[in-house]
Write a protein that binds this DNA or RNA. Structure first.
Lengths: 226, 226
DNA sequence: AGCAAAGCGGATAGGCCGTTCCACTTCGGT
DNA sequence: ACCGAAGTGGAACGGCCTATCCGCTTTGCT
């Protein structure tokens, strides 16, 4: 009984009925490779690259993940878990405004640490059920967080949930541009956005310093050579 | 004498010594096509696409613009002129703070109107002399604008020129994500950034409304299908 | 009008990507 | 230990891109 009808511990990817041991090992290697490549090159890495990095044939990759979207779903589901967990932590803070500030900073830090995830947070993949379920969970938590933070009077009344999306898109742009050469730039953006979200008189962490001009310039040059 | 030694009215692209009439016509067609494609698809349009859109052979394109960078330089030099002109206008405003606010909004509007230019403003191309000369011109004007706006007490003392670069990168991200489906999203970002730049008590235009949730969602979906 | 040079674009070669097929290998239950 | 099934990766397409070559057309000057 203990092993009968394993209730699909795989948390949500496409219905895959118990892979063979070696296949599962390859699957893991693919995911690890994709995680690495996506993290520091963004989502537009070719499937062929992922296969090469993982040390498997392209056919194997295609068989396991028919489309790039499926792969993304599998790779980022656990990061999306961390995202949802961050919402929960923020809600647990007795001071909702402090929780809100911490949430914004944490999420943007996640984007800075993983270019792929930065992009994922600014997109949606209707077919990726596991991913989207967690996103929705985090979203509902965030709505509650907004409401509580507004009640304290520290979060401006005109703040909306859409503002988070806009921030995620904006920060994704900064991270994509500066990750290599000016890795602190995103902190400045977040610091300023928080200033904009805060009602007059609300407590704010000290403003982050501007990125170094030379570092920022180097980031701009790097962007040039595609 | 009147036609001798035309002093190269071409304003700065690679040294090209008087093209033949038909060649010049083709050059114009290429530039028009590239402008169109870059404007609504961003900079990563293949050279082959540009040639096809322009109705010329790939060889012709290559001959005229050896590298993508040369083409970008030629295409966006006049937009960069407009950018520099915007700085000048802002400096002409008797109220430097109002000039500053107008400048930020105008520049971001330019980004919203042209995805390619949005990217160009967040990058630099050391080899593109014409472009970079104008950028430098605008930059110096902007430094002066900052200084005057700070003197009025309306621009926060901790604002730096680097903040403009960060804003351009952030707005490029928002524009790239939302241009198709939520074309007003960038206004919200800019409104909030201005709030962050403004010293307490400074006059600000009314805050832009959040983008429609459904429009924003559609933008996120579009991003998914690359 | 006629000619040399400038310019054209189709053709070709090489690279990378995604997809599919198939002979071979490995697993795992008996 | 064996054997069927599950899984593998190389090879073979077709598509799209860049770069370069070369025979033909157009231009502009005389």
């Amino acid at each position: 009984m203990s092993t009968t009808a394993e209730p699909d511990p795989s948390d949500g990817a496409q219905p895959r009925g118990e892979l063979r041991a070696d296949a599962e090992r390859n699957r893991e290697r693919i995911l690890a490779a994709a995680r690495r490549l996506y993290a520091d090159q963004g989502l537009d890495v070719s499937m062929a690259c992922v296969a090469r990095e993982a040390g498997v044939g392209k056919a194997t990759l295609s068989r396991r993940f028919a489309t790039r979207e499926e792969l993304i779903n599998a790779v980022f589901t656990d990061r999306m878990d961390a995202y949802a967990a961050t919402t929960a932590e923020a809600l647990a803070d007795p001071d909702p405004w402090r929780g809100f500030v911490g949430f914004i900073r944490s999420v943007c830090a996640m984007q800075a640490a993983d270019r792929g995830f930065a992009a994922v947070l600014a997109m949606t993949f209707p077919a990726a059920k596991a991913l989207e379920a967690r996103r929705a969970e985090a979203y509902h938590g965030f709505l509650e967080l907004i409401s509580r933070a507004k009640a304290t009077g520290n979060l401006r009344a005109d703040f909306t949930a859409e503002d988070l999306i806009v921030l995620l898109m904006a920060n994704a742009g900064v991270v994509a541009a500066t990750a290599d050469s000016a890795p602190g730039a995103w902190r400045r953006l977040v610091g300023q956005m928080l200033r904009a979200y805060a009602a007059p008189g609300a407590d704010l962490p000290p403003m982050e310093p501007s990125p170094e001009p030379t570092a920022l310039y180097r980031a701009m040059v790097r962007l040039g050579r595609t």
